[in-house]
Simulated assay, not measured.
Amino acid sequence: MPQTVAQINEKIIAKKAKVLTVNELKALVAAEGVKAAAKQVDVITTGTFEPTESAGAMMNLGHTDPPIKIRACWIDGVPAYAGLGAVDLYLGATQELILDAAVDEEAIDRGGGHVIADLIAGKSLSLRANGQANDCFPRTLLETTINKDSINQFYLYNPRGLYQNFIVGVNGGDRQLYTYLGPLQPRLGNAVYSNPGAVSPLWNDPDLRLIGVGTKVFMGGGIGYISWEGTQHFPLQKRLPNRTPIGPASTLALIGDAKQMSPQWVRGCYFRNYGSALMLGVGIPLPVIDEEVVVMAAVQDQDLIAPVIDFSIPRRVRPTFGSVTYAQLKSGRITIDGQKVRTAPLASIYLSNQVAIMLKAWIEAGKFTLTEPVAMIPADRPFVPQDAREL
């Protein structure tokens, strides 16, 4: 029987809602079918814990005495963008540490993602800022330490914080490559994928029927919201009959209060000879408003595919070795041109499942209610490449 989000929230507040993780829901559908499962569940929880490069933190330091208009800033040696208000900063997860000339660049394994994670963990970090002197803001230098309690606003804003699907990276060349998927060994020595598969949120609502601007989510161990479509949002990607995309497709922008977040779910990471990023736990609850929700969420790893891309060709459109299912990827081996290739995920499949489990516990305890979107995510965005153009 169809129900509304408001009716589901009444059950959550009364601690009577039936909540299943998406893995539990898939098992229930396999055992009893869609109709029986739909009658037994009100909310399905999903989760992912994977790296994201399009992530960062907004901060407001508060005004100094005398005041400063910050035009350049470094937090623990990592530059933060200061082209905003006088003491507003944006620190990108991929921002690189400024190196001393005597330091071996290959020895550096730290960037903006690590600074963000350290602040969330409660650490105090050095801050140095240069100011532009004027009548309102005469100060030109600030050297201090900051932590999450000594600044005003501290929130994550991730322009592309959640992916629906991604690629599998391989290297058909003769030398090792260092990529955003990590090292790819030559002559098809390994294959790396980043999406955790069928537990991940956007596989289970492939057309974003339930998810939109204003949807409340688990973000980094705290509460966040979907703020807009993500950058490189490409809902027009080709799709299978089950509506899941065959390659990179929809993305979402996320926002959440970093002061609520936990270092368990927000971690800096570094890819050798490539750069830094942020590992982030994200979970989305799906309200079971009708049977169609259960049909979509019953999708399994063997029903989902990703393209195998050869990184040895440095072009925007790289050659592929066809597609593989996530079930094949998770088996530890795939076959490419008759060759067995070992696979490894960048995402933590274990922690992705733990996100769904934790979100389930929050909802069952009445601590997390659902929200309806205030606007839907566009379903007609093309993917526009960029080329050099003459004025």
Rank of each mutant, 00 (worst) to 15 (best):
G92S: 15
G83D: 14
I289D: 00
E143R: 13
I151F: 09
G256C: 08
Q176A: 10
D135H: 13
A258Y: 00
R342L: 11
T335P: 04
P79L: 04
R209C: 09
L329P: 02
W74S: 00
F383H: 14
Q40H: 10
L184H: 02
P345H: 01
L278A: 07
A258Q: 02
A102C: 12
N353F: 08
S352N: 13
P345S: 09
G122K: 04
A37V: 02
I309A: 02
D290H: 09
A86C: 14
C269P: 00
D380I: 06
G113T: 10
G33F: 02
G212I: 05
V308A: 06
A356Y: 01
F49M: 04
L240P: 03
I246L: 10
R239V: 10
Q232R: 07
S54F: 08
T371K: 08
P319H: 11
N190S: 14
N9V: 08
E291W: 04
E106N: 15
L99F: 02
V374A: 13
Y225G: 05
D257I: 00
A55N: 03
S126G: 14
L370E: 05
H63K: 03
A107L: 12
T244E: 13
E32G: 07
P206Q: 12
E143L: 13
S352D: 12
K15N: 15
P378H: 06
G92M: 10
L254S: 04
A82T: 06
F49H: 00
D257F: 05
R209W: 08
P248A: 14
T45Y: 07
P248E: 13
L127Q: 06
K259P: 03
A121F: 05
V384I: 15
S227Y: 12
K330H: 09
Q237D: 11
Y90D: 12
E390F: 10
T244P: 04
T144Q: 11
K259W: 00
P319R: 08
V5F: 06
I313F: 14
M279F: 15
I363M: 08
G283F: 08
G256S: 09
W362H: 11
G173N: 01
G33R: 00
Q386G: 10
T320D: 08
E24F: 12
V295W: 03
A30C: 13
L202K: 03
D174L: 03
T320K: 00
F154D: 01
Q260W: 05
Y180W: 13
N60Y: 09
V29K: 01
N273H: 15
M279T: 10
E10A: 13
T145D: 06
G85K: 11
A379S: 15
S348G: 09
E32D: 15
A356L: 06
K69G: 05
F271W: 06
V168L: 03
K16S: 11
G85W: 07
A198E: 04
E50G: 01
L210M: 14
I75W: 00
K238N: 10
Q354F: 09
N23A: 05
Y163R: 08
N171L: 04
Q300N: 15
D205S: 07
P67W: 01
G275S: 02
A297K: 01
S312E: 11
N60V: 13
W362I: 08
E364S: 09
